[in-house]
């Protein structure tokens, strides 16, 4: 998926490609895996999960900034509406996980972090599709 979009985007010079999405996807899955282990071991969300969420949010903000710079440079996604919808949702996901996990200091807090970190890669892939469609 990532290689395919990287080759398409190399031609169209698209910013949402390669590392920009691969890093948050990998991070998100890592946090999801760690949270799943915590859930299965009856552990409340620990500092590692909150730190992971913070790093994930940072990666997503970097992606957002690069995207906005590209938009400023005159590039346009195919469906701007969907693109900005996905982007806004994406940036809100880690904070949502953070707040809900703070409210629920039980194993179910870890389950919430795991769930949201599994949804994030899906939204990222959808975001990538709305952008790649345009450029090609």
């Amino acid at each position: 998926m990532t290689e395919a979009s990287a080759t398409t985007s190399a031609a169209g010079d698209l910013p949402v490609d390669g590392l920009l999405t691969a890093v948050p996807i990998a991070l998100s899955l890592l946090v999801a895996g760690w949270a799943l282990v915590a859930t299965l071991r009856h552990r409340a969300p620990d500092r590692a999960q909150f730190a992971g969420l913070a790093v994930l949010e940072a990666a997503l903000l970097v992606l957002t900034v690069v995207t906005l710079i590209a938009l400023g440079g005159g590039q346009r996604p195919d469906e701007p509406g969907s693109f900005f919808g996905y982007l806004t949702t994406l940036v809100c996901l880690p904070p949502l996980a953070w707040v809900l996990a703070r409210m629920e200091p039980t194993r179910w807090g870890s389950a919430i972090v795991c769930t949201i970190c599994l949804v994030t890669p899906v939204v990222l892939v959808r975001l990538q599709q709305t952008w790649t469609v345009l450029g090609g």
Partner: peptide, 13 residues
Amino acid sequence: SGPGRLLIAVYLL
């Protein structure tokens, strides 16, 4: 709370 909060999270999503 507990599993209910997870359910609320999925409903929110």
